[in-house]
Design a protein around this nucleic acid. Structure first.
Lengths: 205, 205
DNA sequence: TTCATATGGTACGATTTCGTATCCTTCAAC
DNA sequence: GTTGAAGGATACGAAATCGTACCATATGAA
């Protein structure tokens, strides 16, 4: 478990954080395989001794990086207090979802996770659960509690939520991943609006 | 362009194909970085001389592999002669799309392309265009020609098609990529059916 | 001041890996 | 049969890379 990392000076925590942040840039811009420990070192400065003190090997460093970035990026998928009409809430959720999913940091994270999923299955599963799945679960919960009031015929909220998120993604996420073409904030909103228009109408009784 | 690969014996073509097929398994099961030329060699047998004769370096071998696999896998996205009702045609297209996208070979290809997109942008673009984009373009064409007859309010067929494909994918594709959980043929059909149910209803005037 | 600990700088060993070169066999054409 | 090209087995060079070892310095506490 937590070997002996219990006692870390304030300074050491900072140093560890510096290393982690610098290494993050490398591991997310290049791939795991193309990033070398020496490469990390020349960017962060310092000696191998300290690097290997805080992160016993390359895999541990990568794991720490992914966990930190996942926490930071995917925290955007926490539910916000909803205001406005039902339709506006859906539009917001869709736009926010797409905005996060196509952000540069999330695309880099996604790339790393897809590439390394077979070798870091726990990290991949965490990304899936705390990322896309959690986002659509929140939407499902929202649908569950608002379906009746809005006279919607939703038998399977989870499936409907996933389909909505998928409709919002469309091919936009693919373009971001393969082409680096990310939508502007206005575009994401427009995309979400059209998706809501169609699906909301489709769910009507 | 085509240096001097003009004259290849029947036998040589076969040999080249054998190498290509064996190497494909390695490059798609493991990643580009984790696959070594020696590893290819021990699987395919033979000598380095022949390997490097047909493929001058690792990148060339990888490129040839991806091109071949892309051709084979993405050819499933060619349009089929439609029969049955409009609704049934949509269900078929959705189910077929999801079936291909979550097939083991396509997932492996997807993983490789996502991982290597920054280093092989042409291959990535080819995958995007001949894969997901082509599939939704066919659907868009179909929508364009059948929207009026079915009294659908579709102002942007391309966007609608992409949204439909996205809705069909839902989170299923993510699960396949990160968890290896692929849907059965029955499940894909059911998923497509519910998507068609909702979107078709949503497009109605 | 003194001493232990953390850190920087760097050398190093072991291993891997790409691609080339070498030597010998096989096989097909003439 | 002879000959020449293709192919197999393998050695090899060069470079990269992971992780360790060693020594000097700085820092902070007793």
């Amino acid at each position: 478990m937590g070997k002996d990392e219990i006692d870390l000076t304030e300074k050491q925590i900072l140093r560890r954080g510096e290393i982690l942040d610098s290494a993050t840039k490398l591991f997310l811009n290049e791939s795991y395989g193309r990033t070398t420990m020496d490469n990390v070192l020349t960017l962060v400065g310092g000696s191998k001794r300290t690097l290997y003190k805080y992160f016993p090997n390359k895999e541990a460093l990568f794991t720490a990086i992914i966990e930190q970035v996942s926490d930071r990026v995917l925290s955007a998928f926490t539910p916000l207090p909803r205001e406005g009409t039902f339709r506006e809430a859906l539009i917001d959720m869709g736009a926010r979802y797409l905005q996060v999913m196509t952000s540069a940091e999330c695309i880099s994270l996604y790339r790393a996770m897809v590439a390394e999923a077979p070798h870091f299955p726990d990290l991949a599963d965490n990304f899936l659960q705390n990322g896309p799945c959690r986002a659509s679960q929140h939407l499902a919960e929202y649908l569950r509690s608002h379906a009746k009031n809005n006279r919607l015929r939703i038998t399977d909220p989870d499936l409907c939520a996933a389909q909505f998120m998928g409709a919002v993604r469309g091919n936009v996420h693919f373009h971001a991943v393969f082409n680096g073409r990310v939508p502007t904030k206005k575009e994401t909103r427009m995309i979400s609006e059209t998706a809501v228009e169609t699906l909301l109408n489709g769910w009507r009784k």
